[in-house]
Amino acid sequence: NQASVVANQLIPISTHLTLVMMRSEVVTPVGIPAEDIPRLVSMQVNRAVPLGTTLMPDMVKGYA
């Protein structure tokens, strides 16, 4: 099972991601792979992401 990136807190819209905001967890459905966490740092979310939500490629500007 592959770990995905999950929000560690509420991430407001247009926030630049930091390591503190993300954790890796095995979830269904599978989202952005956990090994991409370093790549996600300083990218922006294009919507509010609630605590515990799996980050999907379409939620992060410039990821997909």
Rank of each mutant, 00 (worst) to 15 (best):
I11Y: 03
N8Y: 03
V41K: 04
T15Q: 08
L55M: 09
M22G: 00
Q44F: 05
S42F: 09
A64C: 09
E25C: 07
N8G: 07
E25K: 15
H16D: 09
T54H: 02
L19D: 06
V20T: 15
P33H: 11
A64R: 05
I11K: 01
A48Y: 13
I13W: 09
S14N: 12
L10D: 15
G62F: 09
V45P: 02
V60M: 05
V45R: 00
V5D: 02
S24C: 06
L55C: 03
V27D: 01
S14I: 04
P12H: 08
L17D: 00
L10S: 15
T18Y: 03
L40Q: 00
V49L: 08
V6L: 07
A7H: 02
L10V: 12
D58T: 09
Y63Q: 03
N1F: 11
V27Q: 04
D36H: 15
D36V: 08
G52T: 03
M56G: 04
G31F: 02
I37H: 02
A48K: 12
T54M: 03
M56I: 07
I13S: 13
S24M: 10
V6N: 02
P12C: 05
P50M: 09
P29T: 05
M22A: 00
S4G: 04
A3L: 12
P29W: 04
D58E: 13
A64D: 15
E25Y: 09
L51I: 14
E35P: 08
K61Q: 14
A3Y: 12
I37W: 03
P29R: 05
R47N: 08
E25G: 12
P12Y: 05
N1P: 11
L10C: 10
I32R: 00
L51R: 14
T18K: 11
D58S: 13
L55S: 00
T18L: 07
N1K: 10
V60L: 08
E25R: 08
T53G: 11
S42E: 09
I37Y: 02
N1H: 15
V5T: 06
P12F: 04
I32A: 02
V26W: 11
V60F: 05
P50L: 13
K61R: 15
L51Q: 13
T15N: 04
V20C: 08
V30M: 15
L55G: 03
M59T: 06
I32S: 00
T15G: 06
V45W: 03
L19F: 10
P38N: 11
V49M: 04
M21P: 01
T53R: 13
M22F: 05
T18D: 06
E35K: 10
E25A: 15
V5L: 03
G52P: 01
V41I: 12
M22R: 00
V60H: 02
T18V: 06
V26E: 09
Q9H: 08
V60K: 00
P57N: 05
Y63C: 04
P12V: 05
M21Q: 04
Q2F: 13
P29A: 04
V49F: 03
K61D: 15
T54D: 02
L17I: 07
P50W: 04
A7S: 10
P38E: 11
P33E: 04
L51G: 14
E35L: 10
R23F: 04
R39T: 13
P57E: 07
N8M: 07
V41T: 05
Q2Y: 14
Q44L: 07
P57K: 06
P57D: 05
